[in-house]
Amino acid sequence: MARIIVVTSGKGGVGKTTTSAAVAMGLAKKGHKTAVIDFDVGLRNLDLIMGCERRVVYDFVNVISGEALLNQALIRDKHCDLLYVLPASQTRDKDALTQEGVGKVLEDLSKDFKYIVCDSPAGIEKGAHLAMYFADDAFVVTNPEVSSVRDSDRMLGILSSKSRRAEQNLESIKEYLVLTRYSPDRVKLGDMLSVDDVQDILSLHLLGVIPESKSVLSASNAGVPVILDEKSDAGQAYEDIVARYLGENRPHRFIEEKKGIFGKLFGGK
């Protein structure tokens, strides 16, 4: 049986796809066969972030509607043999996804995969709903910013009332916080909500903090999940997150300002 992870946030642009790509790659690199699914039908982008956009032949909607087999639609990642991407359809609208169809695809994937990462679209409409419906674990991606925190809280409400686990009175979805675009120096100046502030409001299990980092844009430019940029702070932060999710006990990093003499003098900028 696979473990199904939804990467969700409510708000757009906070780093869901970046996180989905990095986490899926991280899990696969740790030796777990992993599939990552783009639920953003009509606005697919996971393929670009994963660097497989030119290899898309069939998509998620084709599989649901029986136009292609799951094996035909799954794209094997070029960096890691244990990672597969199921792209969203670019031409169909979001009503092409059905609960029954998504359930069937996840069930089929579960036979062969250890982890299934569902990259949710923004908003709380059908695509987002179906992305979280079958989840066992939720990675709530949040920016230290008011509208993102509010939307995350809204998503938590939906996870605890509208998911399969909620509807069938099963053990509830495990909810984790991934705080992205974090700037310790701005937090220190009082210009940005701190990890503790966000935790006071959302009270989730903190998986990790991803610092604001140039490497995230470089990685998406190149179509390589940022976790493969092992020298970058964001890449290391995602590596920590995957390790913690898998049960390793790692101290949190990237919450404090960088400590160099240069950083002390000029605030690390």
Binding site: E145, V146, V149, V187, G190, D191, M192, S194, D200, I201
Partner: peptide
């Protein structure tokens, strides 16, 4: 009165 503490209060 830092903007972060205002943000936190409003959010709470």
């Amino acid at each position: 009165s830092s903007s972060a503490s205002i943000a936190k209060e409003r959010l709470q």
